[in-house]
Design a binder for these strands. Structure first.
Lengths: 118, 118
DNA sequence: CGATGTTACTTACTCAAAGTTAGTTGCTGA
DNA sequence: TCAGCAACTAACTTTGAGTAAGTAACATCG
Protein backbone atom coordinates (compact mmCIF):
# COMPACT_ATOMS: atom_id res chain seq x y z
CA UNK A 1 0.00 0.00 0.00
CA UNK A 2 2.92 2.30 0.66
CA UNK A 3 4.75 0.98 -2.40
CA UNK A 4 4.67 3.36 -5.32
CA UNK A 5 6.48 1.96 -8.35
CA UNK A 6 6.87 4.18 -11.37
CA UNK A 7 4.10 2.38 -13.24
CA UNK A 8 1.74 1.82 -10.32
CA UNK A 9 -1.95 1.06 -10.82
CA UNK A 10 -3.04 4.61 -10.04
CA UNK A 11 -0.67 5.98 -12.67
CA UNK A 12 -2.00 3.55 -15.27
CA UNK A 13 -5.60 4.27 -14.33
CA UNK A 14 -5.05 7.98 -14.84
CA UNK A 15 -3.21 7.44 -18.10
CA UNK A 16 -6.09 5.37 -19.37
CA UNK A 17 -8.17 8.54 -19.39
CA UNK A 18 -5.47 11.06 -20.06
CA UNK A 19 -3.94 9.42 -23.12
CA UNK A 20 -7.22 9.18 -24.99
CA UNK A 21 -7.46 11.93 -27.52
CA UNK A 22 -9.38 15.08 -26.52
CA UNK A 23 -9.93 14.07 -22.90
CA UNK A 24 -7.27 16.36 -21.47
CA UNK A 25 -8.67 19.25 -23.50
CA UNK A 26 -12.29 18.60 -22.65
CA UNK A 27 -11.60 18.39 -18.93
CA UNK A 28 -9.42 21.50 -19.10
CA UNK A 29 -12.07 23.68 -20.72
CA UNK A 30 -14.54 22.55 -18.08
CA UNK A 31 -12.21 23.71 -15.30
CA UNK A 32 -13.76 27.16 -15.31
CA UNK A 33 -17.30 25.86 -14.80
CA UNK A 34 -20.05 23.97 -16.59
CA UNK A 35 -20.50 24.33 -20.33
CA UNK A 36 -23.06 23.20 -22.86
CA UNK A 37 -22.23 20.73 -25.63
CA UNK A 38 -21.80 23.41 -28.24
CA UNK A 39 -19.75 25.57 -25.88
CA UNK A 40 -17.28 22.77 -25.28
CA UNK A 41 -17.15 22.15 -29.02
CA UNK A 42 -16.39 25.83 -29.61
CA UNK A 43 -13.58 25.91 -27.04
CA UNK A 44 -11.84 22.68 -28.02
CA UNK A 45 -10.21 23.62 -31.32
CA UNK A 46 -10.88 21.03 -34.00
CA UNK A 47 -12.98 18.40 -32.28
CA UNK A 48 -15.78 16.74 -34.21
CA UNK A 49 -19.22 16.38 -32.67
CA UNK A 50 -18.87 12.63 -32.94
CA UNK A 51 -15.73 12.56 -30.81
CA UNK A 52 -17.04 15.07 -28.31
CA UNK A 53 -20.22 13.11 -27.76
CA UNK A 54 -18.28 9.87 -27.33
CA UNK A 55 -15.76 11.39 -24.93
CA UNK A 56 -18.36 13.14 -22.80
CA UNK A 57 -20.24 9.87 -22.52
CA UNK A 58 -17.10 8.06 -21.37
CA UNK A 59 -16.17 10.79 -18.92
CA UNK A 60 -19.68 10.66 -17.51
CA UNK A 61 -19.44 6.89 -17.16
CA UNK A 62 -16.19 7.30 -15.26
CA UNK A 63 -17.73 9.92 -12.96
CA UNK A 64 -15.53 12.76 -14.13
CA UNK A 65 -18.36 14.87 -15.49
CA UNK A 66 -22.06 15.08 -14.77
CA UNK A 67 -24.57 15.64 -17.55
CA UNK A 68 -27.60 17.81 -16.90
CA UNK A 69 -30.49 18.31 -19.30
CA UNK A 70 -32.52 21.53 -19.29
CA UNK A 71 -35.69 20.64 -21.14
CA UNK A 72 -36.09 23.86 -23.09
CA UNK A 73 -37.15 23.83 -25.81
CA UNK A 74 -34.67 23.94 -27.29
CA UNK A 75 -33.19 21.28 -25.09
CA UNK A 76 -29.86 22.30 -23.56
CA UNK A 77 -27.38 19.94 -22.03
CA UNK A 78 -24.75 21.07 -19.58
CA UNK A 79 -21.59 19.25 -18.58
CA UNK A 80 -19.87 19.92 -15.27
CA UNK A 81 -16.83 18.41 -13.60
CA UNK A 82 -17.26 16.19 -10.56
CA UNK A 83 -14.77 16.43 -7.67
CA UNK A 84 -12.62 13.79 -9.39
CA UNK A 85 -12.77 15.82 -12.58
CA UNK A 86 -11.84 18.99 -10.75
CA UNK A 87 -8.86 17.15 -9.30
CA UNK A 88 -7.40 17.15 -12.78
CA UNK A 89 -6.54 20.82 -12.39
CA UNK A 90 -3.22 20.08 -10.66
CA UNK A 91 -2.34 17.67 -13.45
CA UNK A 92 -3.19 20.28 -16.06
CA UNK A 93 -1.01 22.84 -14.33
CA UNK A 94 1.92 20.42 -14.13
CA UNK A 95 1.44 19.67 -17.82
CA UNK A 96 1.46 23.38 -18.68
CA UNK A 97 4.68 23.92 -16.76
CA UNK A 98 6.28 20.95 -18.49
CA UNK A 99 5.05 22.18 -21.87
CA UNK A 100 6.88 25.42 -21.22
CA UNK A 101 10.08 23.46 -20.63
CA UNK A 102 9.50 21.58 -23.86
CA UNK A 103 9.03 24.66 -25.99
CA UNK A 104 12.02 26.33 -24.37
CA UNK A 105 14.18 23.27 -25.01
CA UNK A 106 13.01 22.95 -28.60
CA UNK A 107 14.23 26.36 -29.68
CA UNK A 108 17.43 27.09 -27.76
CA UNK A 109 18.20 30.01 -30.12
CA UNK A 110 16.64 32.24 -27.51
CA UNK A 111 18.10 35.66 -26.84
CA UNK A 112 18.73 37.64 -30.03
CA UNK A 113 21.79 39.20 -28.42
CA UNK A 114 25.03 37.86 -29.93
CA UNK A 115 23.49 36.04 -32.86
CA UNK A 116 25.14 32.82 -34.04
CA UNK A 117 26.85 33.20 -37.40
CA UNK A 118 25.93 31.20 -40.51
CA UNK B 1 2.95 36.44 -22.80
CA UNK B 2 1.33 36.53 -19.39
CA UNK B 3 -1.90 35.14 -20.76
CA UNK B 4 -2.45 31.51 -19.89
CA UNK B 5 -5.70 30.21 -21.33
CA UNK B 6 -6.77 26.71 -20.46
CA UNK B 7 -5.70 25.34 -23.83
CA UNK B 8 -2.53 27.40 -24.27
CA UNK B 9 0.20 26.40 -26.70
CA UNK B 10 2.40 24.94 -23.98
CA UNK B 11 -0.43 22.71 -22.78
CA UNK B 12 -1.08 21.47 -26.30
CA UNK B 13 2.63 20.91 -26.96
CA UNK B 14 2.91 18.76 -23.86
CA UNK B 15 -0.26 16.85 -24.68
CA UNK B 16 1.08 16.09 -28.11
CA UNK B 17 3.70 13.90 -26.43
CA UNK B 18 1.75 12.80 -23.41
CA UNK B 19 -1.34 11.52 -25.19
CA UNK B 20 0.58 9.24 -27.52
CA UNK B 21 0.42 5.70 -26.30
CA UNK B 22 3.35 4.42 -24.21
CA UNK B 23 5.15 7.77 -23.96
CA UNK B 24 4.12 8.47 -20.38
CA UNK B 25 5.20 4.98 -19.38
CA UNK B 26 8.51 5.06 -21.20
CA UNK B 27 9.49 8.40 -19.71
CA UNK B 28 8.38 7.25 -16.27
CA UNK B 29 10.54 4.12 -16.25
CA UNK B 30 13.51 6.23 -17.32
CA UNK B 31 13.05 8.53 -14.33
CA UNK B 32 15.31 6.35 -12.20
CA UNK B 33 18.21 6.51 -14.64
CA UNK B 34 19.29 5.30 -18.08
CA UNK B 35 18.14 1.94 -19.36
CA UNK B 36 18.92 -0.21 -22.36
CA UNK B 37 16.34 -1.02 -25.02
CA UNK B 38 15.58 -4.44 -23.60
CA UNK B 39 15.42 -3.07 -20.05
CA UNK B 40 12.80 -0.51 -21.01
CA UNK B 41 10.89 -3.23 -22.83
CA UNK B 42 10.97 -5.39 -19.70
CA UNK B 43 9.72 -2.59 -17.43
CA UNK B 44 6.91 -1.30 -19.65
CA UNK B 45 4.31 -4.04 -19.34
CA UNK B 46 3.03 -5.14 -22.74
CA UNK B 47 4.87 -2.94 -25.19
CA UNK B 48 6.00 -4.42 -28.48
CA UNK B 49 9.52 -3.83 -29.80
CA UNK B 50 8.04 -2.08 -32.79
CA UNK B 51 6.26 0.52 -30.65
CA UNK B 52 9.17 0.98 -28.28
CA UNK B 53 11.59 1.61 -31.13
CA UNK B 54 9.22 4.10 -32.74
CA UNK B 55 8.53 5.95 -29.49
CA UNK B 56 12.17 6.15 -28.44
CA UNK B 57 13.00 7.55 -31.86
CA UNK B 58 10.33 10.22 -31.49
CA UNK B 59 11.37 11.08 -27.97
CA UNK B 60 14.95 11.41 -29.13
CA UNK B 61 13.87 13.67 -32.00
CA UNK B 62 12.03 15.87 -29.49
CA UNK B 63 15.07 16.02 -27.21
CA UNK B 64 13.44 14.19 -24.33
CA UNK B 65 15.86 11.28 -24.34
CA UNK B 66 19.41 10.79 -25.57
CA UNK B 67 20.49 7.59 -27.24
CA UNK B 68 23.97 6.21 -26.61
CA UNK B 69 25.50 3.23 -28.37
CA UNK B 70 28.12 1.06 -26.66
CA UNK B 71 29.77 -0.86 -29.47
CA UNK B 72 30.02 -4.23 -27.75
CA UNK B 73 29.68 -6.74 -29.29
CA UNK B 74 26.96 -7.33 -28.65
CA UNK B 75 26.02 -3.73 -29.27
CA UNK B 76 24.16 -2.13 -26.38
CA UNK B 77 22.08 1.01 -26.63
CA UNK B 78 21.24 3.12 -23.64
CA UNK B 79 18.48 5.68 -23.33
CA UNK B 80 18.62 8.50 -20.81
CA UNK B 81 16.32 11.41 -20.07
CA UNK B 82 17.42 14.92 -20.97
CA UNK B 83 16.62 17.82 -18.62
CA UNK B 84 13.31 18.30 -20.46
CA UNK B 85 12.61 14.61 -20.04
CA UNK B 86 13.46 14.75 -16.37
CA UNK B 87 11.03 17.65 -16.01
CA UNK B 88 8.26 15.17 -16.64
CA UNK B 89 8.66 13.84 -13.12
CA UNK B 90 6.37 16.50 -11.62
CA UNK B 91 3.74 15.69 -14.23
CA UNK B 92 4.02 11.99 -13.43
CA UNK B 93 3.59 12.69 -9.73
CA UNK B 94 0.52 14.84 -10.35
CA UNK B 95 -0.90 12.09 -12.53
CA UNK B 96 -0.32 9.50 -9.79
CA UNK B 97 -2.11 11.67 -7.22
CA UNK B 98 -5.02 12.17 -9.58
CA UNK B 99 -5.10 8.46 -10.36
CA UNK B 100 -5.56 7.80 -6.66
CA UNK B 101 -8.56 10.14 -6.66
CA UNK B 102 -9.97 8.31 -9.64
CA UNK B 103 -9.70 4.87 -8.09
CA UNK B 104 -11.13 6.15 -4.81
CA UNK B 105 -14.05 7.77 -6.63
CA UNK B 106 -14.72 4.67 -8.71
CA UNK B 107 -15.33 2.43 -5.71
CA UNK B 108 -17.01 4.60 -3.07
CA UNK B 109 -17.95 1.47 -1.06
CA UNK B 110 -14.88 2.21 1.02
CA UNK B 111 -14.99 1.69 4.80
CA UNK B 112 -16.22 -1.76 5.81
CA UNK B 113 -17.76 -0.24 8.96
CA UNK B 114 -21.56 -0.14 8.74
CA UNK B 115 -21.85 -2.32 5.68
CA UNK B 116 -24.63 -1.59 3.21
CA UNK B 117 -27.34 -4.23 3.28
CA UNK B 118 -28.29 -6.40 0.30
C1' DC C 1 32.52 -24.99 -40.34
C1' DG C 2 27.69 -24.53 -39.36
C1' DA C 3 24.06 -24.06 -35.76
C1' DT C 4 22.40 -21.30 -32.11
C1' DG C 5 22.04 -17.12 -29.12
C1' DT C 6 22.08 -12.16 -28.10
C1' DT C 7 20.75 -7.18 -28.82
C1' DA C 8 18.37 -3.79 -31.04
C1' DC C 9 15.94 -3.15 -34.21
C1' DT C 10 12.67 -3.66 -39.31
C1' DT C 11 9.11 -5.25 -42.29
C1' DA C 12 4.66 -6.94 -43.48
C1' DC C 13 0.10 -7.55 -42.18
C1' DT C 14 -4.30 -6.88 -39.29
C1' DC C 15 -7.53 -4.45 -36.64
C1' DA C 16 -9.34 -0.79 -33.74
C1' DA C 17 -9.45 4.10 -32.91
C1' DA C 18 -9.93 8.52 -34.80
C1' DG C 19 -11.37 11.76 -38.49
C1' DT C 20 -14.91 13.32 -42.20
C1' DT C 21 -19.33 14.09 -43.97
C1' DA C 22 -23.93 13.87 -43.80
C1' DG C 23 -28.36 12.97 -41.49
C1' DT C 24 -31.81 13.04 -37.45
C1' DT C 25 -35.22 15.02 -33.87
C1' DG C 26 -37.88 18.64 -31.95
C1' DC C 27 -38.80 22.95 -31.91
C1' DT C 28 -38.71 28.40 -33.52
C1' DG C 29 -39.03 32.25 -36.37
C1' DA C 30 -39.47 34.36 -41.38
C1' DT D 1 -42.75 25.67 -46.09
C1' DC D 2 -38.08 26.56 -45.54
C1' DA D 3 -34.05 27.64 -43.03
C1' DG D 4 -31.88 27.28 -38.51
C1' DC D 5 -30.42 25.79 -33.94
C1' DA D 6 -29.08 22.18 -30.38
C1' DA D 7 -27.28 17.85 -29.44
C1' DC D 8 -26.49 14.20 -31.10
C1' DT D 9 -26.13 9.61 -34.51
C1' DA D 10 -24.76 6.80 -38.68
C1' DA D 11 -21.87 5.54 -42.56
C1' DC D 12 -17.50 5.59 -44.43
C1' DT D 13 -12.30 6.52 -44.85
C1' DT D 14 -7.82 7.24 -42.90
C1' DT D 15 -4.49 6.77 -39.43
C1' DG D 16 -2.47 4.64 -35.58
C1' DA D 17 -1.56 0.74 -32.70
C1' DG D 18 -0.90 -4.39 -32.16
C1' DT D 19 1.14 -9.13 -33.76
C1' DA D 20 4.45 -12.05 -35.81
C1' DA D 21 8.28 -12.82 -38.04
C1' DG D 22 12.76 -11.39 -40.03
C1' DT D 23 17.46 -8.95 -40.02
C1' DA D 24 22.65 -7.66 -38.90
C1' DA D 25 26.70 -8.26 -36.43
C1' DC D 26 29.09 -10.67 -33.79
C1' DA D 27 30.13 -14.86 -29.93
C1' DT D 28 30.13 -19.30 -28.41
C1' DC D 29 29.32 -24.32 -28.83
C1' DG D 30 30.01 -28.73 -30.86
Amino acid sequence: MTEDPLLCATYLAALDILTKSWNAMIIAVLEDGPLRFSEVAARVPAIADRMLAARLKELEARSLVVRRVYPGPPVRVSYELTPAGRGFREVAEAIRRWGKMLLDAEKPRAHPRRAARG
